[in-house]
Amino acid sequence: MIDIKNISKWYGSFQVLTDCTTTINKGDVVVVCGPSGSGKSTLIKTVNALEPIQQGDIVVDGTSITDKKTNLPKLRSRVGMVFQHFELFPHLSITDNLTLAQIKVLGRTKDESLKRGLKMLDRVGLSAHKDKFPGQLSGGQQQRVAIARALSMDPIVMLFDEPTSALDPEMVGEVLDVMVGLAHEGMTMMCVTHEMGFAKRVSNKVIFMDAGKIVEDCSSADFFGKPEERSPRAKDFLSKILQH
């Protein structure tokens, strides 16, 4: 469903991504991990072309993001994205946050989008908050609304960019619960996260990055189950995060 083919990206003369290649199939739950500054967030943002790439190509559901003829807004409307800092629209109510893009981008009617939005809000367990504004919710609640907003668009794949990194520890669980539920329903997901418990239990594939390169690209069973087969850098990373 997502083909990342030999992509490279530079900020000025600094290379952030070097020749990254991987494939994500329908129904995959892929966890992207690695030390800070390794290019994980940049990689996930290239998938819906929020970050442009200078070399290589990415094909999402048959559509190349580097093709000049590609309608990027249309492509993005089919790819859900959840951000580290939630990025709900603070000037709009929760309901408007859920319906805005459905109406303006997908051309759905008000009723239709409201119905769909509230269904997704119910799914993340926040129906009672539909008339509030984002600033009135906790971080965990905002992130769940952000997931509901993305799901309202009926995406074919969901991208999560460190969805729990900005949360208080006690709110991490509620967001991960929603993500686990999605994974069990067969949603194709790509998640940049440090939550190794989630990676171990839910993902079927792990991509480990370091210094802008994909160092490991294997099944999560192998990644966590056969540490002796891992590269030295991944071993080092795993030993540091798993010892506690």
């Binding site: 807004p73 993005r76 790819v79 951000f83 990025e87 629209f89 000037h91 981008v105 997908l106 668009m153």
Partner: peptide, 27 residues
Amino acid sequence: VPRGQVFAGYAVGMTYAQCMRLVVLPQ
């Protein structure tokens, strides 16, 4: 307006004009 807001607008499929009109300029 934080850059993340622009990303969020684009990510749900807005065009530049929509993102400005609906997300950035009101804020």
